[in-house]
């Protein structure tokens, strides 16, 4: 699914003394099958933006257009499109409510109107996608799981709806390094299997550099930079001004260059950095 965001503007508490412009004239396109990273300072409007992408918020101005249809419309076509855009909120484990894991993951597909068997089949598949064994977990209470497990169950709850576009708002916030890696590996795995379009909101530049093929940078409600990770992370000064940093591998190369090593600085991951270092020193 191709998602076009056109001139999106959103104002909270319009006409009140607390009025804040959360988004201002944001435009970009998510190509089908792409993996985009959305970065920006806290309060730059990232969360507001993604809530527009599946119609939870209505734009004050502008539109979100999916496959040629404005998703804010009240038509059935627009509703059907909204359901194909899955949104995983920050700390999604706080949305768990059912008595068992299986029933909680079934909540989404059930709302889409599938039969009990179909829901369960989808739920078990979604659980396997997030790396949880359905048979062991299906009858456990979601409230008795560990933090990382809860998060994966919550993500499975969205995956069970089998969306074409998956938007993840800081899916690794508050997880330990193992949980962090597990969630991101899982995202990559799902992307490979289902050929999803993914938009990942994160504060972690290493993740963006490693996973994304497109990077969007926001500041104060505006989209200030857009490009490939290579393009974005070559602009250290600008990123620094926005309160953002470079991926660690890129930073390492820059420091090496400063010390007089003839390395290239356009690397994004540690694998590429290693290659460079081996080439120069090896």
């Amino acid at each position: 699914m191709r998602i076009e965001v056109k001139g999106l503007t959103h104002i909270y508490s319009e006409g009140m003394p607390f009025e804040t412009v959360a988004l201002e004239d944001v435009s970009f396109t998510l190509q089908p099958g792409s993996f985009a990273g959305l970065i920006g300072h806290t309060g730059s409007g990232k969360s507001t933006l993604i809530q527009h992408l599946n119609g939870l918020l209505r734009p004050v101005e502008g539109a979100v257009i999916a496959d040629g249809v404005d998703i804010a419309e009240k038509s059935d076509a627009a509703r059907a499109l909204r359901r194909r855009i899955g949104l995983v909120f920050q700390y999604p484990e706080y949305q768990l409510f059912e008595e068992t894991v299986l029933r909680d993951v079934c909540f989404g597909p059930k709302n889409l109107g599938f039969s009990q068997e179909e829901c369960e089949a989808r739920a078990l598949h979604a659980l396997s996608l997030v790396g949880l064994d359905g048979e062991t977990f299906r009858d456990r209470s979601p409230f008795g799981l560990s933090g990382g497990e809860k998060r994966r169950v919550a993500i499975a709850g969205v995956l069970a709806m089998e969306p074409d576009v998956l938007i993840l708002d800081e899916p690794t916030a508050g997880l330990d390094p193992a949980g962090h890696r597990a969630v991101l590996d899982m995202v990559q795995e799902i992307k490979r299997e289902r050929d999803l379009t993914i938009l990942l909101v994160t504060h972690n530049m290493d993740d963006v550099a490693r996973l994304a093929d497109r990077v969007l940078v926001m500041e104060k409600g505006r989209l200030v930079m857009e490009g490939t990770p290579g393009e974005i992370f070559s602009k250290e000064q600008e990123l620094h001004r926005l309160g953002l940093s470079l991926p660690q591998a890129t930073r390492l190369m820059k420091r090496l260059e400063e010390k007089g090593c003839p390395v290239q600085t356009d690397v994004l991951t540690f694998e590429e950095a290693e290659e460079q270092i081996v080439k120069v020193f090896g």
Binding site: L87, F89, P92, Y94, Q95, F107, K110, N111, V158, M161
Partner: peptide
């Protein structure tokens, strides 16, 4: 705020 957040999360899962 919490209600708002949970409501949105469940709406995103198709709750009505």
């Amino acid at each position: 705020d919490e209600t708002d957040k949970i409501m949105k999360a469940q709406t995103a899962r198709g709750a009505d």
